[in-house]
């Protein structure tokens, strides 16, 4: 009887431990990639890591790390969360633009840095104006995911990725041109 009573907590501890271990393994194998996807959208390594951690925390709250859909979920959530941050950035952008000359003065080539920053801003704004699926296709593929991985993350057939990607590339170029001329 005593042995039975003790067996339950031990079993639970083991279960919790194995869940934590599974999450740690998932984190270690996917963190760099998830942060990379966010960085591709945000062009800001610090903010990208914030997003990656937020994505993992949310995943851990919702799902088991051993779920077969875990990597696909993380990739998609990273792209969408980062894109949402860009969409919500407008107010902050004004502040950053006001600070830009001050920051640029500390760099080796202020003019070049300013231009690079402005180009990135225009591209990210254009990316955020695309519909969610094309934007995610571009970001995931540019982050090094295979067609199959992009398809899994977005829940579409692998055969559709080539077409989606080509259309999204054309759409982004058009948006960037539009954004630059505004």
């Amino acid at each position: 009887m005593a042995a039975n009573l003790e067996a339950v907590p031990e079993g639970r501890t083991r279960l919790v431990k194995s869940r934590e271990e599974a999450f740690e393994a998932l984190f270690k194998s996917e963190y760099a990639r998830v942060a990379g996807i966010a960085n591709r959208v945000l062009a800001d390594p610090h903010e990208a890591e914030d997003v990656a951690q937020e994505v993992f925390i949310n995943f851990h709250r919702l799902h088991s790390a051993s779920a077969p859909f875990a990597p696909a979920w993380l990739h998609r959530a990273a792209a969408h969360t980062a894109l949402n941050r860009v969409r919500g950035r407008r107010r902050r952008e004004k502040r950053e633009l006001a600070q830009a000359p001050e920051e640029a003065s500390r760099t080796v080539d202020p003019q070049q840095m300013l231009e690079v920053g402005e180009d990135r801003r225009v591209v990210r704004a254009a990316l955020a104006r695309l519909a969610p699926k094309p934007a995610a296709v571009l970001v995931l593929r540019a982050s090094g995911l295979s067609y199959a991985e992009v398809a899994q993350a977005l829940g579409v057939g692998t055969g559709q990725i080539g077409t989606l990607l080509r259309r999204a590339e054309a759409a982004l170029r058009k948006e960037v041109t539009r954004g630059s001329s505004i």
Partner: peptide, 13 residues
């Protein structure tokens, strides 16, 4: 063009 546009700063997590 898109590959260039989506270039991102180095990330070393």
């Amino acid at each position: 063009a898109v590959a260039t546009l989506l270039a991102a700063p180095d990330l070393q997590p």
